[in-house]
Computed example of a mutant assay.
Amino acid sequence: MSLRKQLSDLLSQLLPANPSDAIKGTELIRLVRMQLNGNYSDASLRYHFSIMSCDPGSPIAKVEKGQGYYRRSAPLPALSGAQELLSLTQGRLDDLTSGDQGVVDEAMMRVRKFRAVVTRYFEVNGRFPFAFREAFGKDSPISNLWKFPEMVLVDWETGGSPDEEMSLDETMLAFKQRLGLAPFRLHAARLRIQPSLATYREDFFQTLAVSTWAQGGELIYAAPIVDEALADGLRRLSATFGVGVTSFGLTPEVLEELPRPANILNANLRETDAIMSMLDVTRISSVNSRAHLDWTALSSMRDGSDETEKLVRWLTRCIDSRRAEPYKDE
């Protein structure tokens, strides 16, 4: 096995996710040597660390304006990334093929930051996000964009006291089980950067399509919705089909000012408060939440998606333990 392949496997396990816990090069070399096959010089290992940290697909990232390495956050899935770029250029392929790669990279970084902000926002507001990634890999069919959400948001019936914040309400849980109702609300979400009159119908109906199995659908935009005709169009569609629409009020300039995705996801309380203060969350229309899941559609999704199976197992664990726990990758 090549050195780079060995390092890719080892660094995914050794590196911390939080940049503030970054490991300096000398210590990382020591840790790597304990499991590495082959006799490689320190210079060779440092060279590979440096080269790999510049590769967006590698697991190692270097601390910006500092020393040390940490585990790079997951790259944007290919299908959703490609669709986001097409949306930003309003479907003009020439704008992508003839564009500067640096501009494309900056656009993708804004997308990754937004996804991290949405995840953190819902975590601190008592909702439990579950992200779909494998469904949008580079070898996945384009139809998956109309079948799977980018994120599922779970709202549990929890206890009322602060000490039981994560505990499920036993009485309500038993009551709903007797009525055949789920003790949670599952909303399927689509995330988009820039709303526009040219693309909002596709955004909306894609959200509707990927949420038919859930109890509701939510379309979440990063940028503010300032066009009155656009806002009215979204409200009319929402009134008919029940999909909720929200803007986080993040302009491209504000997105660029935000920390890197890994810093956002691992921010402490003070840092999180600072990030949340940059948001201007506006509800354009409310979601019409249904009482029941479409079990037939959910079963169909499970047959074609390991991630759906992980979602179901996670929800089952929470019900069995009577605790609403954040999802941890299996």
Rank of each mutant, 00 (worst) to 15 (best):
S167T: 02
A189Y: 00
G216S: 04
Y200Q: 10
S161F: 04
L191Y: 00
A209F: 09
L208S: 06
G216F: 05
A222S: 04
E164V: 11
S161P: 09
V152T: 06
E170F: 04
N144E: 05
A189M: 01
R190D: 00
A222D: 02
A198Q: 15
E164Y: 01
G159H: 00
Y200H: 13
E150D: 08
A223W: 15
G160T: 15
L153M: 09
L179C: 14
D227W: 02
F175K: 08
I220K: 00
P195D: 01
E218M: 10
L145G: 03
F204Y: 13
L179M: 15
A174I: 04
L181W: 13
S167H: 05
F175P: 01
M151K: 04
R192Y: 05
E165M: 15
L191E: 00
P195Y: 13
A222H: 05
L179V: 08
G180V: 06
I225M: 14
A182D: 03
D227E: 14
S161G: 10
P195L: 02
T171E: 09
Q206L: 15
Q215K: 08
T212H: 12
R201Y: 14
T171N: 07
L186Y: 10
K147S: 12
E170T: 15
R190H: 03
D163P: 09
G217S: 04
L186I: 11
A174R: 06
P162M: 11
D155K: 06
Y221S: 11
W146N: 10
T199G: 15
L208R: 13
P183A: 14
T199D: 13
M172R: 08
P183L: 03
F175V: 08
E228L: 09
F148D: 03
S196I: 13
Q215I: 00
R185M: 02
L219I: 03
T199E: 07
P149A: 12
R178S: 14
R201N: 09
F205K: 06
D169T: 02
A198F: 15
T199K: 15
S167E: 07
D169Q: 08
P183H: 00
L168E: 02
G180C: 11
A189I: 01
W213I: 05
P183E: 01
I225L: 10
D203V: 10
L168H: 06
T207S: 13
S196D: 08
